[in-house]
Computed example of a mutant assay.
Amino acid sequence: MTATAEPLFQGADWDFLTLQRIHDACEGIARSELGLDVYPNQIEVITAEQMLDAYSSVGMPLFYKHWSFGKHFAFHEASYRKGLMGLAYEIVINSSPCISYLMEENTATMQALVIAHAAFGHNHFFKNNYLFKQWTDANGILDYLEFAKTYVAQCEERQGRLAVEQTLDAAHALMSHGIDRYPGKKKLDLGAEEKRAGRRRLHEEAAFNDLWRTVPTGPAKSDAMLNVERRRKLLGLPQENLLYFLEKTAPRLQPWQRELLRIVRHIAQYFYPQSQTKVMNEGTATYVHYRIMKRLHEQGRISDGNFLEFLQSHTNVVFQPDFDDPR
């Protein structure tokens, strides 16, 4: 496409057809020139109050009810109304389709930036980063949240709101300790196990030395020590995931309480890669949005004025002041 191509928009105003043109132009560059592999996109335009609401529920489009979400909403709303905090230009969710929330107050240039940043930069990272592929299920998270919301509501009807609230309070308190940081054991492959056993047997035969038989062994383990080891094995210890441990072994929990712990544990695990990859995730999205916006400007799809507006926002993001910078 030449530099005489028709601009995607003029000025700061936009409509939904403009967003569609911006998305299609960004998608063409992202796929054909950058080679990005992304989930299908779903773009939602929301108000400031809806953005505050998304803040309170960790950006998810649906969630079960809990008083802490209302507390977060009240805090963020008060801070926003007093001018103590601003709102993000967008929120993006690791799901399939990938949901990107755009603020309706954004100018057309900022909408183009946000679509390039979130709908293609973050989207590509979500789909291809190994931590997200290992610990999250983008295709199933929305269905699981729907199940969680319905299940918690049913528990409140059957068990009472207070009992459910107390269980969720306890689970939320342990949420940061309810994640698996390392992958579990892989499924056994009979053929591979037989080959491994054969290699081990050949090695033992080749390295056999009868002198090892004469080496004295340590003292025999007492019955108490054997009992402790047996109990640890039955409990699956050591276990770093406290929510999993309580879900499986706590003797006094009711089945519905175990399921609530399981729900909180799965949601905590879903968000685990987010905290582990913050810098890399934002770096990828920033690189992608710069490449796309720069290419749109080269193609004549955005004007010099729009590109300068983008550069002002972009440089504010990537600027790294020195440790003793007086600003």
Score class of each variant (00 low, 15 high):
residue 195 K to Q: 15
residue 196 R to Q: 11
residue 196 R to M: 10
residue 199 R to Y: 13
residue 200 R to K: 15
residue 202 L to D: 14
residue 203 H to A: 14
residue 203 H to I: 09
residue 204 E to H: 15
residue 206 A to R: 10
residue 206 A to L: 10
residue 207 A to T: 14
residue 207 A to E: 08
residue 211 L to N: 03
residue 211 L to P: 02
residue 212 W to M: 10
residue 213 R to K: 13
residue 213 R to L: 14
residue 215 V to G: 03
residue 216 P to A: 06
residue 217 T to D: 12
residue 217 T to M: 09
residue 217 T to S: 13
residue 218 G to W: 10
residue 220 A to C: 02
residue 221 K to T: 05
residue 222 S to H: 05
residue 224 A to L: 07
residue 225 M to P: 04
residue 227 N to L: 14
residue 229 E to V: 06
residue 229 E to G: 11
residue 230 R to S: 09
residue 231 R to L: 15
residue 233 K to H: 04
residue 233 K to R: 09
residue 234 L to S: 11
residue 236 G to N: 02
residue 238 P to A: 01
residue 238 P to N: 06
residue 239 Q to V: 04
residue 240 E to Y: 02
residue 241 N to M: 01
residue 242 L to D: 02
residue 244 Y to L: 11
residue 244 Y to I: 00
residue 245 F to P: 02
residue 246 L to A: 08
residue 247 E to R: 13
residue 250 A to G: 09
residue 250 A to C: 13
residue 253 L to I: 01
residue 253 L to Q: 01
residue 255 P to R: 01
residue 255 P to E: 04
residue 256 W to F: 00
residue 256 W to C: 03
residue 257 Q to F: 04
residue 260 L to M: 01
residue 261 L to Q: 00
residue 263 I to P: 04
residue 263 I to F: 00
residue 265 R to M: 05
residue 266 H to F: 03
residue 269 Q to V: 00
residue 270 Y to G: 01
residue 271 F to S: 08
residue 272 Y to P: 02
residue 273 P to Q: 08
residue 276 Q to K: 14
residue 278 K to P: 01
residue 279 V to L: 12
residue 282 E to S: 07
residue 284 T to W: 14
residue 286 T to Q: 11
residue 289 H to D: 15
residue 292 I to H: 12
residue 293 M to S: 08
residue 293 M to A: 08
residue 296 L to G: 06
residue 296 L to W: 05
residue 297 H to M: 00
residue 297 H to S: 04
residue 298 E to R: 10
residue 302 I to Y: 13
residue 304 D to C: 14
residue 306 N to W: 10
residue 306 N to C: 15
residue 308 L to E: 15
residue 311 L to C: 09
residue 312 Q to F: 09
residue 312 Q to S: 15
residue 313 S to M: 09
residue 316 N to P: 07
residue 318 V to K: 06
